[in-house]
């Protein structure tokens, strides 16, 4: 266990410096910057009756949660293991006396720090941009946006990193999952919605009693579960996915090709 923690820490530090200097980081920064820029545009140019809460709610729901969070997590998460395989540097780590799951944990943790940093700042920046309008933000809305961003970033990143443990092209599978499976299932009325991560993230984000959500044109707004329940479900999903990923990386062989 101590070996695992030590190796995880060392790989976390190695990956953190790597990820900070990568092109993916640049792409991730650009992605995270889009919602605040849009919020600023809307806050400046929207008609007078648009309230700050509506701006924050709409942008968080339609743009952040459904597009930015999954794409950013996909860009960052799919690289966790796959980058080492594609660059053929995984050999160095797998021939060192470290438990193999440390590779997943260390690199994932570094990636998560980046994802939290970007999505967290993005959420804060959207709230600040929306607050430029006259009027007050509903109580707890900014916190909900922040929490949904962080939790969404975490769960999606873990999911895509784990897919990368098992599949050679996690990016393609992740795209299919995000834009085909989730977009289709999460927007179909009925119980099947709860099979998606989106549904639970929406449950954290949306408070149907707040007026700002009325104008966001969200379907089935009353069908969401409570934030606590959603958080619990997502925590279980994240832990199970992580365990599956750790078991997978401990057993899998990676045949490196030119």
């Amino acid at each position: 266990m101590i070996e695992l923690l030590r190796a995880t820490w060392l790989l976390f530090r190695m990956q953190l410096t790597m990820v900070m200097r990568s092109r993916r980081m640049l792409l991730a920064i650009l992605l995270a910057a889009i919602p605040p820029v849009i919020a600023l545009i809307v806050a400046t140019f929207a008609p007078g009756d648009v309230k700050p809460g509506e701006i924050l709610a709409s942008i968080s729901f339609w743009l952040n949660l459904q597009v930015i969070v999954p794409i950013l997590a996909l860009v960052a998460g799919s690289a966790v293991v796959t980058e080492e395989i594609e660059n053929r540097t995984i050999t160095y780590l797998f021939t060192r006396p470290i438990p193999r799951p440390a590779l997943l944990f260390g690199r994932l943790l570094a990636t998560l720090v980046l994802v939290w940093l970007l999505l967290g700042s993005s959420a804060i920046a959207i709230a600040l941009a929306a607050a430029q309008r006259t009027g007050e933000l509903p109580d707890g809305l900014a916190l909900r946006v922040f929490a949904a961003n962080i939790v969404g970033g975490t769960v999606y990143t873990i999911l895509f990193a784990t897919i990368g443990v098992f599949l050679r092209h996690p990016m393609i599978v992740g795209l299919g999952y995000t834009f085909a499976f989730e977009m289709a299932i999460a927007n179909v009325p009925g119980g099947s919605q709860s099979l998606t991560i989106q549904y639970h993230l929406r449950s954290i984000l949306v408070d149907a009693t707040e007026t700002c959500w009325q104008s966001a044109e969200i379907l089935n707004i009353d069908s969401f579960s409570s934030p606590g329940e959603a958080l619990g479900t997502l925590a279980v999903v994240a832990i199970v996915t992580l365990v599956v990923g750790a078991l997978g990386i401990a057993r899998r062989q990676y045949v490196l090709t030119a």
């Binding site: 660059n87 540097t89 050999t91």
Partner: peptide, 11 residues
């Protein structure tokens, strides 16, 4: 182990 592939952490 010194692998054949020309792969290093370039940065």
């Amino acid at each position: 182990f010194c692998p054949q592939q020309d792969a290093l952490y370039d940065h």
